[in-house]
C-alpha cells in the first residue's frame, strides 16, 4: 500500500526507528498516521484519554500546564526528532499536560490501542518499543530534577 510505504519512509527518518528490525517497523506502521498541526492547535489536552503518542518530524510542540488565575506555563518543548507522550503506557492512561503546537508541526502519530495489542501478542515488539520509551522517560525525569534544582542560580561569577 502506497500510504504504508510513505509512512515507512517517514518512520525510517525518525531517530526512534534506529536499529528497529523491518518486520517490527512494519507492525508499527500498521498503527501509524501522518498528522499536521497548525501553530496554536492542541495535540492533546490534560485529562483527555491518552490513546496516542507522537514522533515529531518537524516543528516545536510546547508541553504546558495551566492553573486558574495564572498564565499557562511551558515546562518543556519537543521538536524535530523528539518523542511526545507516554501517558498511554501508564494507567489510568490520561494526559497529564497540554501539548500545543508552537509552530507548524508535522508528526507521525500512533494509535496505542492498536499498538498495545500488537505489543501484547509480540513481546519482542513490546520490548523494543519500551526500550525506546524508557530513555525518554528517564530524560524527562532527569530534566525535571535539574529544573527543580534550579541550575542557573546561584549563578556564575560575573
Amino acid at each position: 500500500m502506497v500510504q504504508v510505504d510513505n509512512l515507512g519512509r517517514i518512520l525510517e527518518e525518525h531517530p526512534f526507528a534506529e536499529g528497529l528490525e523491518p518486520a517490527l517497523k512494519e507492525l508499527m506502521i500498521g498503527c501509524a498516521a501522518n498528522e499536521r498541526f497548525e501553530a496554536g492547535q492542541f495535540l492533546f489536552r490534560e485529562g483527555g484519554d491518552a490513546k496516542k503518542f507522537y514522533l515529531v518530524r518537524s516543528g516545536v510542540v510546547a508541553v504546558e500546564v495551566h492553573a486558574p488565575g495564572r498564565q499557562a506555563l511551558t515546562v518543556e518543548t519537543v521538536d524535530d526528532g523528539g518523542v511526545l507522550g507516554w501517558s498511554w503506557l501508564v494507567a489510568p492512561h490520561k494526559w497529564t499536560f497540554d501539548a500545543r503546537a508552537q509552530t507548524l508541526v508535522r508528526a507521525l502519530s500512533f494509535d496505542t490501542t492498536c499498538l498495545m495489542r500488537k505489543m501484547d501478542s509480540d513481546p519482542i515488539l513490546g520490548y523494543q518499543v519500551l526500550k525506546r520509551f524508557v530513555p525518554v522517560m528517564a530524560h524527562r525525569l532527569h530534566a525535571a530534577r535539574m529544573q527543580m534544582f534550579d541550575l542557573y542560580g546561584p549563578g556564575k561569577k560575573g
Binding site: T77, H142, L151
Partner: peptide
C-alpha cells in the same frame, strides 16, 4: 506563552 523558543534543560 509568547516565548517561541525551546523550553527544557
Amino acid at each position: 506563552p509568547g516565548w517561541g523558543g525551546h523550553v527544557g534543560v
